[in-house]
Every structure is written in C-alpha cells, then in structure tokens.
C-alpha cells in the first residue's frame, strides 16, 4: 500500500494515533535513508556572490506529498502539485555577516525559467509560480483554509529584502511537468545594481 493511501486511511478514520505512529516511523526512516545516501531528490545547486547566498534542490514527489498531506491537502491536490508544480526547496539570503553590508533585494518575478526541450531547443522563458499564482490555483480548488495558509507561508516570498545575516527557507515552484529539465536565470539587487546568474541543467522531481 502506498504511503499516501495509508495517510488517507488514517485521516478518514480519524485515527490520530495511527497517523502519529506513521509520522514518527517515517521520521526514523528518513534518518535511516539519509545515512544510506538515497537517491530520489535532485542535486544541490549553490551560488554565492554579489551579496547573495542561494541553495536550491528539487524535492521528490513523496516529499511534496508528505508536506501537503500533513497540512490537510487531499491526495489529489498533492498529486497535482507533484505533476505540475516542479517544487524545489531553497535557502536564500544575504551573504554578508557584517551589519554595515548592504541589503539584498529579491523579486522572484524577475527570475526566468528556461525549459529545455528534448530537441535541445530552448522554449520561451516562463515565470516562476509565485504565491500569487498559487493563490489563484487554490481558489479554483476546494482546499481547506489551513492547508492554503501553510502552503502560502511555505513558499519562498515573492519579494523580500534581506539585511545582513537574514535568510529564508521556502519552496520554489517552477510550474513544469515532473522530470522536466530547465535552466534558471536568477536576479537580485544590491545598492541599486542588478545582478544576474544562470543555473543550468536543473531537473524537476517526480
């Protein structure tokens, strides 16, 4: 039985005990899996320079399902996000540790997703799926309010200014089908100057 089926079963029966046991067991399993250097998540891409510090990594479908089911989404919603959302985890912040360093301004609307077609031709750049896009998506689906709130705050903010030592963790959503390959152009501003960097060969989880 798939783990998400177990989750649904536990939720339907209102068995908090069963759910709790599953969660705790899974946590231990996760730790075990970590020690075994499991595959199933993408490689880590890191960048550090011009004030910015960034680390992103594709999440596996089951990781996304786990987060979503735990927050009250349905299995169908979770599957839809896995199939269409292309979710990465991220840690992004100000590289500087000195209070005198400038603030780093990030606007995800300035970033570009460049899907790579099988023919190696590059498609037209696409925007990220930001909080605003997801808000519109959830508005069309019967999603519990608590789940929407968690998803909203789980996504990396669309716009944020990071003072020295500030950082955020959050999901980035590139709005591509599972297993898609793409390049990513990131942009940020420091002291009025815009910087650009390209991350190549990213792959959505499945």
């Amino acid at each position: 039985m798939m783990v998400r089926d177990l989750a649904s079963l536990a939720a339907r029966r209102g068995s908090l005990m069963l759910l709790s046991l599953l969660l705790n067991g899974a946590f231990l399993q996760v730790c075990t899996a970590q020690a075994q250097q499991v595959s199933g998540v993408g490689p880590i891409s890191r960048y550090q320079g011009h004030g910015l510090r960034l680390e992103i990594q594709a999440l596996a479908g089951d990781q996304i399902r786990a987060f979503m089911l735990g927050r009250g989404f349905s299995s169908a919603d979770a599957d839809w996000v896995v199939a269409n959302g292309c979710i990465f985890r991220s840690q992004i912040g100000n590289q500087a540790q000195s209070a005198a360093a400038p603030t780093v301004h990030i606007a995800l609307n300035d970033w570009e997703v460049h899907p790579v077609k099988p023919s190696q031709d590059k498609a037209k750049p696409k925007p990220l799926w930001t909080r605003e896009k997801w808000q519109a998506i959830w508005a069309r689906r019967p999603v519990p309010e608590g789940a929407k709130i968690a998803f909203h705050w789980g996504l990396f903010p669309t716009r944020q200014s990071h003072a020295p030592a500030d950082y955020n963790w959050g999901f980035l959503s590139f709005g591509l089908p599972a297993k898609s390959r793409f390049d990513l152009t990131i942009r940020w501003q420091v002291a009025g100057q815009t910087f650009t960097h390209h991350l190549k060969g990213l792959v959505c989880g499945e």
Binding site: M2, L6, V30, Q57, Q63, R65
Partner: peptide, 22 residues
C-alpha cells in the same frame, strides 16, 4: 525503502533531510 522513508515524514523532517543531503 526510499518511498516508505520519504513518503510520510513530517514536512519539517523532510525539509531538513533534503537540506542535509548536501
């Protein structure tokens, strides 16, 4: 084993795990 491992963890555990995979 991997599917069982990652399929049901709490979001935080998974997030941390993913972060630590580095």
């Amino acid at each position: 084993r991997i599917r069982l491992s990652v399929g049901f963890g709490i979001g935080a555990a998974l997030w941390l795990w993913a972060a630590q995979m580095g």
